[in-house]
Simulated assay, not measured.
Amino acid sequence: MSGCGGNGHSHDHCGGGGGHEHTPPDLGVAYSLFTRIDTNNIECLNEAVEGSGKTVFKAWEDRMDRDKFVESDADEELLFNIPFTDNIKLKGIIVIGGENGYHPNKMRLYKNREHMTFDDVSLAADQEFELHPDPSGTLEYTTKVVTFSSVTHLTIHFPSNFGEDTTKISYIGFRGEYTKAHRHGVTICNYESAPQLSDHKDKAMDSVGRPVM
């Protein structure tokens, strides 16, 4: 584990999954994307306590609060379905897991696949990471920005841990940017009606030029 979990200023790769130790200048701002999560509609599959999965998404300054955490139930797997209220450009993720063997050792990301279940995780993930124990929340796993540039829903699958029967997670943080989601209904309607204008042009003129009997 050398090189991962040091002073927080190294940009060396940590593991084969592309994780970086990375300290943005203002972490409170950089990790504020939790405010763009549609918290009420988060789904956490295999959580031992219903609703506990939602509690791991919290403000940066609360990341060390271990009173709120999620623990897996039947086995070590956890699956999060996370909808966002806006379009997200996801740049990095921090995961604080349980002590020792309870910490997840792998993370798999799926973009814009709503309501995934454990039956769906056989699909190839958009990105995968080998995780390292990170009790202080300083190890960031950098995502492929091209892939995760327009995210409205993120699924995170934690398939295994460092040896315990269950997995514990107390914090998941997202770094990136967001743009307000736009409602496209009117735009789509205009696009669909535009080609029809020429089709009905003559009829429209007739209806104007001639009284309707």
Rank of each mutant, 00 (worst) to 15 (best):
M1P: 11
G3D: 06
C4R: 11
G8H: 03
S10Y: 00
S10N: 13
H11R: 14
D12L: 13
D12R: 14
C14R: 03
C14D: 04
G15V: 08
G15Y: 05
G16L: 06
G18P: 04
G19V: 11
G19K: 12
V29E: 14
T35L: 15
T35R: 15
I37E: 05
D38P: 00
D38E: 14
N41G: 08
C44P: 07
C44D: 10
E47P: 03
E47R: 10
E47W: 07
A48K: 15
V49F: 12
G51K: 04
K54P: 00
T55K: 14
W60L: 09
R63A: 06
M64F: 06
D65P: 03
R66K: 15
F69A: 14
D73N: 15
E76L: 00
E77S: 06
E77A: 07
F80G: 03
P83M: 08
D86F: 09
N87D: 13
I88S: 07
K89M: 12
K89P: 00
L90N: 01
K91I: 06
G92H: 06
I93P: 02
I93K: 05
I96S: 02
G97H: 04
G97V: 02
G97W: 04
G98M: 04
N100M: 10
Y102L: 12
H103I: 03
K106Y: 05
M107C: 02
L109P: 00
L109V: 02
K111A: 07
E114K: 15
E114T: 15
H115P: 00
M116S: 07
F118E: 06
D119Q: 09
D120T: 01
S122W: 05
A124G: 00
L131G: 06
H132G: 00
P133L: 12
Y141R: 10
T143Y: 05
V145L: 08
V145T: 14
V146W: 12
V146N: 15
V146F: 12
V146I: 12
F148K: 09
F148C: 07
F148V: 10
S149N: 13
V151Y: 02
V151S: 00
V151C: 04
T152K: 14
T152H: 13
H153P: 03
L154E: 09
N161L: 04
N161T: 04
G163F: 04
E164H: 09
D165V: 14
T166D: 12
K168P: 00
S170A: 14
S170M: 06
Y171G: 01
I172H: 02
G173S: 04
F174D: 05
R175A: 08
Y178I: 03
T179N: 09
A181R: 15
H182N: 13
R183N: 15
R183D: 15
R183Y: 11
H184Q: 01
H184A: 00
Y191T: 11
A194T: 12
Q196V: 05
Q196H: 11
L197W: 05
L197Y: 04
S198V: 11
D199F: 11
H200C: 07
K201N: 06
V208T: 01
